[in-house]
């Protein structure tokens, strides 16, 4: 079978059966591409995962794009990304079509009244997990607190927060670097 069709189908299957986004996909991709087909080595695979995490965008799609590009340049990336996207695109489109008709149904509405607070809690919980892995302590706790308040109370766009914090990290890194070279000069 053609390489592009095959890789499209592999990622289509993985995309169809993984609930929970990119991280849930990693072991499945590893099994398919590293263990079964030996298209890439494990070290290369781990490097690509690390790289996918440092670029913005949808993690699952980034993994597909970087592996595809590594194997067959642009069209490899295209085939694998299309495979990842298509299952969820189709399913959500079908739901959106149906949901428009059921939106005002009182039974559906009552079910969602119960679900909505749960969803908010499901976003709150990983916030604390993320705070742990981002090593938030007394000295840098002001960064998440101030950014959350700016977005929540003053209606700041999260995009500005991302740009500012990236820039802040860069400037701070440069400042530390300068201090270090100054000390070495003395």
């Amino acid at each position: 079978m053609n390489f592009y069709i095959k890789s499209f189908l592999i990622f289509f299957r993985i995309g169809l059966f993984t609930i929970g986004g990119g991280y849930a996909m990693i072991p499945l991709i590893e099994n398919e591409l590293v263990d079964k087909r030996k298209w890439i080595s494990r070290d290369e695979f781990l490097d690509l995962i690390a790289l996918s995490q440092t670029v913005p965008g949808i993690f699952a799609v980034n993994i597909a794009i970087f592996i595809g590009y590594k194997l067959r340049r642009f069209w490899g990336a295209f085939a694998m990304a299309a495979g990842t996207i298509l299952p969820s695109f189709t399913i959500i489109l079908a739901i959106a079509l149906c949901f428009q008709q059921f939106k005002d149904n009182p039974t559906i509405e009552s079910i969602f009244k119960g679900i909505r607070p749960a969803v908010v809690a499901l976003i709150a919980a990983p916030t604390f997990k993320m705070a742990k892995s981002a090593r938030i302590n007394l000295y840098n706790a002001w960064i998440p607190v101030v950014s959350a308040l700016l977005i929540w109370l003053l209606g700041f766009s999260p995009i500005y927060i991302i740009i500012l914090s990236g820039l802040g990290g860069y400037l701070y890194g440069r400042y530390l670097h300068k201090q270090k070279t100054k000390k070495e000069d003395c």
């Binding site: 976003i123 090593r135 998440p144 950014s147 959350a148 914090s165 890194g173």
Partner: peptide, 17 residues
């Protein structure tokens, strides 16, 4: 690396928001 040192705490703030 230093850009990400700034981004990581801000992402926590984004999720809290």
């Amino acid at each position: 690396a230093s850009v990400f040192n700034g981004l990581r705490p801000a992402v926590v703030g984004l999720m809290a928001a």
